[in-house]
Design a binder for these strands. Structure first.
Lengths: 199, 199
DNA sequence: ATTATTTTGTTCGCAAGTGTACAAAACCAC
DNA sequence: GTGGTTTTGTACACTTGCGAACAAAATAAT
């Protein structure tokens, strides 16, 4: 019961996420966002409590939509390297497809060191660390599956892959085509022996 | 002639650069910066004309201090791969040494897409592109010197190195040690055959 | 219809930042 | 010391943003 809201809350979070993705967290004020949503700040605070809380929701939404591809659809015993390569390839495509060249919202957020967003930064770091940790696990599984030779430097390979993923997300902000992104990625993947290009 | 300024302009630019490095361009206001410099906004505008102009100066200063190591001290005919590896190694060290974990000011600035800083973003992109172009050249020279086998994918290697450099700068923002940064870098450099670790 | 509940619209006071204008101050040269 | 010059200090008018308070509006349940 009670008066019905005149806007779709979920849609609003999505809009907020895109605003933050495009302009960075810093520039998205409660005021500007409320205007964009066609509501008053009054309603904003009523619905979202605070800007920080909305940022948190936007991050959750972002992460839920980018569920990695690493774990999603993963079947025990299935070959992992092709999946890994597919994930990287999809990343290249996604980054290049975004006409605004916004890169990765999370990675972008990493640079917003502002003490204001301590909570957001913390969440981003925690999430990225967790995803990177899965890279280690993935390589271990690849070895178990016999897809990858254990040269005693698995952890080093995982670190290299971390830097590749971060690097690709940044490269996407320098007018780069999907082809160039994927060539950069493929070169690293191949030389790390975690990917064999199809003949 | 005229009344002498009560502050050191060059020192001020340096302070401004560090402020921007630490907090991002967005958060450095004329007001806060003037306070930090112990001058009034009046003097600020008199000395720097505008915030944008100061950002431009700060960028110039930053780039001049990070003169790459790629070209500086480069001698025609000298082996380039060790120099390249040395540059990457120094990058790892510099990034890890910075207790504030600020990463690279230029790379950070890449994400500040705000239309306010269109000029700054443009300058950063242009500079990074130029430096990356030198990577291509460097690899070509390595081939000429017989340091590197031309497998027909030189450009791909250069792209991979680009992503490595960008990635390292971002990795530095996730609590990473110098050792881990260098291990990530070394792994990529070695697998790309542009570096041979000393025995 | 009345009531409880929830969202809205409006208003207030406050803080921070912008850019400009103009007088006061401090110096150099003559 | 008188001028010319440059930097400072102070003031003004303006914009954007914040968060809270409170009344008005719109609904569901009874």
């Amino acid at each position: 019961m009670g008066r019905p809201a005149k806007f779709d809350r979920d849609a609003a979070v999505k809009i907020a996420m895109n605003e933050m993705w495009t302009n960075g967290f810093e520039l998205v004020s409660v005021q500007s966002l409320s205007e964009k949503l066609g509501i008053t700040r009054s309603s904003f605070y009523n619905a979202f409590v605070s800007r920080e809380a909305l940022i948190d929701e936007a991050l959750d939404l972002y992460f839920s939509r980018t569920a990695d591809g690493i774990w999603v659809g993963f079947k025990e015993g299935a070959p992992v390297l092709p999946m890994l390569a597919g994930m990287v390839r999809k990343l290249c495509k996604d980054r290049a497809t975004d006409v605004l060249g916004r890169g990765c919202m999370a990675v972008n957020g990493l640079t917003e060191t502002s003490p204001n967003h301590a909570a957001a930064t913390k969440k981003i770091i925690a999430t990225l660390e967790a995803r990177f940790a899965r890279l280690d696990l993935l390589l271990t599984k690849a070895v178990e599956n016999g897809e990858l030779k254990d040269d005693g430097c698995l952890r080093d390979k995982a670190l290299a892959l971390q830097s590749l993923l971060l690097g690709l997300n940044m490269m996407a902000k320098l007018e780069r085509s999907e082809d160039e992104l994927w060539r950069a990625a493929k070169t690293v993947l191949c030389s790390l022996k975690v990917y064999e290009p199809e003949p």
